[in-house]
Design a protein around this nucleic acid. Structure first.
Lengths: 169, 169
DNA sequence: ACTTTATGTCAGTGTTGTTGACACTCCAAG
DNA sequence: CTTGGAGTGTCAACAACACTGACATAAAGT
């Protein structure tokens, strides 16, 4: 059985994507994601924190003052799941949770000084690997990498991604 | 503070990688991986299986007759963790475990007919998304995507990845 | 015979996801 | 103004899946 599939992209040559090519892409994603998380995971293991804490810290740093609900949608977990993580981060003095001024139902989340320091440590580790990979691959490859990843996201996530991108550094 | 870092790649122009660019890459990986696993996860949820079962089935399909130890290294988990998953898959008649002929300590793992059917269902879902992303991004982007992912892996994983790639379809 | 290797199992623990139940706040309809 | 619904956050219990440690068995290697 011939399992090739033709695809026409405007202005592009015909694309033949065999199951084999796609499978290799799938396995590349799997192995690369392991590497992607390996360095922060090592740091977090010593601190009795996990990947969930890292993600929370990352996005609170990205969108300071964000609400719990906002963070929930970004991370794609239930509020109960996020709450456990936030509770420990607040208890450990890494995150500050302040009641909303207009709407007192909301809690606005910010990193404390200690929180910023951990964020920096984790980001540095993750960026180091990303930087090495980017340099090794070269600029054209990086552009393609980003293009494919964006195309792979769900619409909601792509929207979140774009929104964060626009916030700027 | 200027946090740009110059990098020279042979034959390439100087690469300036800001923390902002790297951060975007990190977030792209995060959101894309969510999309990457979303479709199989939905299917598995109805079957009382999880991502761990999917990974086991995927690699048993890729390397039929592989041993437990082999699979362990590929997946990067402990034998206790894998064993729990394999036990249910064998009990449910999706995986067959046969004692090795030369080395009777080893167990060779193969998918049963039912196992192949589930593998096909899961792969089809995951490939559909990958195929759509590949088509949308175009061939040059795909090449870059693969290059960056390979550069992001740990050495061990890159070796596993290459070994699987050589097995062919 | 002794050691190492491959595998399986039991028990215990931690992180991270889930649902269910509940409290507090806001807002709008009566 | 009160009341009810919607939004937001918290607590409790449970499930999935990873981990370590300890131990048993069988077979291969020395």
């Amino acid at each position: 059985m011939d399992r090739r599939t033709p695809a026409l992209k405007s202005g592009e040559a015909l694309l033949f994507l065999t199951d084999e090519q796609l499978r290799q892409g799938i396995e590349a994603m799997f192995f690369a994601y392991r590497g992607f998380t390996a360095d922060p995971d090592r740091i977090l293991a010593d601190l009795a924190y996990g990947r969930a804490h890292h993600r929370a810290i990352h996005f609170i740093n990205r969108a300071p003052g964000t609400t719990v609900n906002n963070l929930l949608n970004l991370l794609g977990v239930t509020k109960q799941s996020l709450n456990r993580v936030l509770r420990t981060l607040v208890a450990d003095g890494l995150v500050q949770s302040t009641v909303g001024r207009q709407d007192k139902r909301e809690r606005h989340l910010n990193l404390t000084q200690a929180g910023h320091e951990l964020e920096q440590t984790l980001s540095d580790a993750q960026r180091a690997r990303m930087r090495a990979a980017y340099r090794e691959a070269g600029p054209e490859a990086v552009a393609g990498f980003r293009t494919v990843l964006e195309a792979m996201m769900d619409n909601e996530m792509r929207a979140s991604y774009a929104r964060l991108k626009d916030i700027g550094p």
